[in-house]
Nucleic acid binder design. Sequence first.
DNA 1: ACAAGGATTCACT
DNA 2: GTGAATCCTTGTA
Length: 193
Amino acid sequence: MAWDLSAPVEVVAPTLVGAIVRHGEVAVRITEVEAYGGATDPASHAFRGRTARNETMFGPPGHLYVYFSYGMHWAANIVCGPDGTASGTLLRAGEVVDGVDQARARRGRATDRDLARGPGRLAQSLGLTGELKGCYVLGDGAVTVRPGTPRAPVVSGPRVGVSLEADRPWRFWEADSRFVSDYKRSPRAAAVR
DNA sequence: ACAAGGATTCACT
DNA sequence: GTGAATCCTTGTA
């Protein structure tokens, strides 16, 4: 059965907490996500309309949107919302639950806790790169996402790392989890408050 | 064609 | 706590 991700992104995003994302031997239990809208969200890559990079976000839900940032990091999103709404959910952090050895090999030296705590780290642990962009994750593809139950209530709060609309409470994480990034607001965006 | 900035991470002081 | 690394995408000239 296909998991229905076509509800508005701010509704779907919290339901992704607890889900299991798998790529090959490595599987991660998601503990933190962040929702991004389209035309109504200045912080979203899709805010300025459809481009070659964000094309996937405009498509149907259930696909993978991977992008490269800061010249060194990949970040993975699951496209959500109805076809054409250009919204997605960034996988911000998780706990490696399978394939730990391979994940650790990819990550170099890092504690188990830090293997997937952070968007770039999570993508690196799973080996997600631009080659997987647009891949359908609700079927039998190379990358799969299946529903899971959070171990604790899911709470929400301000977004991290974005300079606009940072206060929109579209970041969702599992309460009391050690595998959630507790980054302070970036110094650049610190002016907002 | 060019310049600016980014949904970050890591090492060093 | 502060600063650098590093390259892709986008808007503007």
